[in-house]
């Protein structure tokens, strides 16, 4: 066998490090230059400053966008988790005509280019009273996020196996009791993970939100609109906040999904 420090393995670790740097670079740039005193983010570094963070947090439009994002994220996470659980449980427990079509309809939305999804939702929702409200964004984001929620919960249900729930029925539990007392507690980590991941998906999405949100800007939409204007040092500051929030959400989701595995 090769020794662990052969040339080829050193090369492959260096390559991996380069790839990691490429992936992390844009995020690092955002964070580092949000504390730069310069107006335009470039080298040399213009000195440490939290001026832009202050400016960003004093911008009423940014604060409004943050609030919208929080509302939309929470609504999306709640709905997508409920729908995701329903879909995962249906797939796990039942067989009926049309299930496959239904599961595809739940799984596929993230594969549709967001520009098209945004346009379709805009064309459709503009004929409904919810158009231009945070509700319209929640509805659209839920369609995207339930796919991820379903995947996470379905994976956990596979670990549950067919016997546990049937054992509950066998011991006198009704269908509803078995779900409440056995399936839900068993899936709790993945359900919570689905909640946080759905929130992250919603928090990250800008195209559909831009199309259907009307005057209600979420944070990524605010950033998009700022990008289309002048160079604005507040972008880095607000970007740091956005990155911190979405990374935290995904990290929590990951941690939860992993604890689920350990308790088994």
């Amino acid at each position: 066998m090769k020794s662990p420090l052969s040339l080829s393995s050193v090369m492959s670790f260096i390559y991996l490090a380069c790839l990691a740097l490429f992936i992390a670079a844009p995020m690092l740039v955002i964070v580092v230059f949000s504390f730069d005193a310069n107006r335009f983010p470039t080298l040399p570094w213009g000195g440490f400053s939290i001026e832009w963070h202050k400016a960003a947090l004093n911008d009423p439009m940014i604060i409004a966008a943050l609030r919208n994002s929080a509302i939309v994220g929470f609504g999306t996470a709640t709905l997508a988790t409920i729908l995701g659980f329903c879909a995962a449980y249906l797939d796990y427990r039942y067989h009926f005509f049309g299930k496959r079509a239904m599961m595809i309809a739940v799984a596929i939305p993230p594969a549709v280019p967001v520009a098209i999804l945004g346009m379709a939702m805009l064309a459709f929702l503009s004929r409904t009273p919810i158009f231009g409200s945070p509700t319209a964004i929640i509805v659209s984001h839920t369609v995207i996020a339930s796919s991820f929620a379903m995947a996470l919960i379905r994976l956990r249900l596979t670990e549950l196996g067919p016997d546990l729930e049937q054992a509950a029925w066998n011991l006198g539990a009704s269908r509803a009791q078995a779900i409440r007392l056995i399936v839900l507690p068993f899936c709790r980590p993945s359900i919570m993970a689905a909640f946080f991941l759905s929130a992250a998906v919603s928090f990250d999405e800008f195209m559909v939100a831009w199309f259907v949100g009307g005057v209600h800007e979420t944070l990524p939409v605010r950033i998009l609109n700022m990008l289309q204007g002048q160079v604005n040092p507040k972008i880095n500051a607000i970007g740091t906040v956005v990155l911190a929030i979405s990374l935290t959400l995904v990290l929590i989701a990951q941690r939860l999904a992993r604890t689920g595995k350990e308790t088994r």
């Binding site: 196996g161 016997d163 066998n170 539990a173 009704s174 009791q177 068993f186 308790t263």
Partner: peptide, 20 residues
């Protein structure tokens, strides 16, 4: 009569004990 109403408890090969 549904499974829950039968009072025919079963011992499973996988045991099916509730882990939580």
């Amino acid at each position: 009569v549904s499974a829950a109403e039968r009072d025919t408890p079963m011992v499973w090969q996988s045991l099916a004990l509730f882990p939580f």
